[in-house]
Design a binder for these strands. Sequence first.
DNA 1: TGTATAGTGATACACTGTCTCAGTTTCGGG
DNA 2: CCCGAAACTGAGACAGTGTATCACTATACA
Lengths: 139, 139
Amino acid sequence: MGSAAVRDRMLAAGQRITRQRDEVVDALERARRPLAAREICDAVAESNPDVGRATVFRTLHALAAAGIVQRVTLAGGRPGYLLCEAEGHHHHLVCTSCGRTIDLPESAVTPFLTGVEEAHGFTVDHSSFDVHGRCASCR
Amino acid sequence: MGSAAVRDRMLAAGQRITRQRDEVVDALERARRPLAAREICDAVAESNPDVGRATVFRTLHALAAAGIVQRVTLAGGRPGYLLCEAEGHHHHLVCTSCGRTIDLPESAVTPFLTGVEEAHGFTVDHSSFDVHGRCASCR
DNA sequence: TGTATAGTGATACACTGTCTCAGTTTCGGG
DNA sequence: CCCGAAACTGAGACAGTGTATCACTATACA
């Protein structure tokens, strides 16, 4: 079952708690790393084979809208989904060795983006960074 | 036919010039904006219906390896391919209004990445930024 | 011009993601 | 506690992305 914290965030976002959504959150909580859509479907099917693929994708969309999950780009360009502890918009460093992620708060990025906006007369609506490398413990 | 500059860059990368590759480059040069794989297939098929889908993907891969094309993320998370004037590793600002892109040289990004590395004990192997917003002339 | 080798087309396969529609479940108010 | 509006679900069809194989072909270079 998904943690109480996640539940509260979903309710706060006006979304309902369902068995199916619980199982998606569960799979992500157990993994502690970004999962491909396929991996999530498989993990969910293990505890409940009757959950449809469409529901998994809808759930991921809903969780992303609530800021609970973030879609990231894995090494190789494949998309993955990551459960975020941090609330609000933020970015991630993805370790190519152990697969774990490090949160990068928006505040660490804002000065850089502001500089870019000023240099090019560009207004940033949305940004996402894919930074792959090795974390401190994998070097 | 792809420009001579692109031809030289492909030869320099040890790749052969073929009719099919020329047509992929052509499609991207005409568009002057990132294209979805499907759009490239359609554009190529218009001038030569016998070019296989697999060849288009292989060509995009080869062009990306030579730094001639970059895979970017379009609004909505869909992948797109962009012909790059600039050589070497760099990033792009994508205008959500007119679809055009602005090159962001690696040198504009390095100080930011260095700061991130120092703050988190992380070694960056590869980074790609998706920055969406409005360019100066679309505001 | 000849030839080693890179490139090609067809086809099959796997994954990602969206849509529709009838039926079900949840949440909040009474 | 029960009810109903509205959100959610499952099945299945569909479309795009991307990779692999294998026999065949075209290119670059000596």
